[in-house]
Structure formats: C-alpha cells, structure tokens
Design a protein around this nucleic acid. Sequence first.
DNA 1: TCCTATGCCTAGACAATCAATGTATATCTC
DNA 2: GAGATATACATTGATTGTCTAGGCATAGGA
Lengths: 111, 111
Amino acid sequence: MGNHGDLLRGALESLVLEAIDKGATYGYAIARSLEELSQGELVTKEGSLYPALHRLEKQGLLKARWQDSPQGRPRKHYQLTGLGRKHLAAQRDAWSRFSRVVNRILGVDHA
Amino acid sequence: MGNHGDLLRGALESLVLEAIDKGATYGYAIARSLEELSQGELVTKEGSLYPALHRLEKQGLLKARWQDSPQGRPRKHYQLTGLGRKHLAAQRDAWSRFSRVVNRILGVDHA
DNA sequence: TCCTATGCCTAGACAATCAATGTATATCTC
DNA sequence: GAGATATACATTGATTGTCTAGGCATAGGA
C-alpha cells in the first residue's frame, strides 16, 4: 500500500472528477473517498488536491459554492459542469487506452 | 491515439526498463519499440527519454556502453543491472496495484 | 488545557515534461 | 552535388505540477 507519487499525477484530475460525480462534493470528502475507495492505496495530499480543484474550476469543469457544515468549518462544495462531464468521459477513455497499453507492455495481469 | 502527456510521467521509467529488457537497448530503438508495441499510442519525446536514461544510469539501474552502428551515428547501448531488475519488478507491481485501483474507481473495463 | 478531527489554503523547494535546437552520419532522390 | 529523410544522442528554457510544511479556523473529547 502506498504512495504512488508520479503515477497519481496523470490520473488525479480524473479521480477527483469521478469522486465528485460519486457524491464526494468537497475537498476533504474527496480525499477520504479516494482513500476509502482504494483501500488506502491512494493518498491524496492537500498540496495537490486543492490546487487541482482550483485548476478544474478555472477551466470550467467544476462549479463551487460554499455551504455551512454541521461540524467544523464551512465546506466548499463542487459539482461537475457540462464541460466537466465531457472531460471526465474523455479522460476515462484516455486512461482506459493508456492503462491497457501499459499493462500489455509490462506484462501485468488486469484481473 | 495520442499523446498521454502526464499519464506517461509516472510510467515512463518502467516502460523504458521494460523496453531495454525486451531487447531495445539504445535510445532511438527504445522510442521506436514503445511506439510499435503500443501501436502508436505511446510517443516518447527525446526531451524526456534521454534525461530519463541518464537518471536511470545515475541511479545504478542501467549500465551503458558505446558501440558503432552499421548506419548513422554510434549508439549508446544500455543494459539492466541487478538493481535495475529489482526496480523493474517493484515498479511493475506498483503499477499493477495502481492501475487496478484506478480502473475500479473510474469504472473502466480491464479487458 | 491539549489533542484530534474536520476543513480550506498557500508558499517555496523540487522534479520532470516539452518544444526547440544543435550536432553528426548515411542513404536516397532529383 | 544539392536537398530531404532516417538514424542517433544531447541540452536548454519555459512551464507545470507535486510535496513538505506551515497557517487559519471550529468543535469535541480526554
């Protein structure tokens, strides 16, 4: 289990979009969600996650709104825009082709 | 088909080690080999490939020797060291775990 | 009171990509 | 012999993204 440093770099944005689409709509929840969905395999550092969210918002893939939380500080909730949804689909596809090819070259079982 | 920019970043070193292990023992051949093995999906730019080879050599994962070519300029042939072989195995494993998790989260078929 | 969990954010150090360019030889075509 | 193309290695400067480390802030439990 671990810290897949550079591997995460290319997939982080897709994973974040996906997590939001799955209902983890704010930063802290996205990090928890990815950690849980991956059984601890993916650890999202704040220094990458928050800049990524800002990037995605600036690119028009996400829209944000602040909302109070029952505990702790207010949360910044994100949702996919139409463009974001399109990008997620495209990135899913790109990842699919990429991982298939790498799996084949590295001789890794895709079980 | 295309240019998997950031995705390649985390897998390039593994792919290079693998290509060398498969017999593409010098830079130009490695690039051609990966392009062919991936049916054009992976395009290795020289500005990433050569620095990567130097990195791997400096880390003791590769050993290099110059050799004349029947055509064009001399070639710098690489081969895996023992350490390089160990790293390749470890990186293959890391990639396997990572891609499995991402595939699952993105809902991508691993066919 | 202090620690932990929740929650957002950023600055500076660092690392790696890419486009572009340079160098060099051999071969093929016009 | 002029020019294009394939082979072959290498570097530079701009850009971009990660990570460590810290800051700010509220709430609950020990």
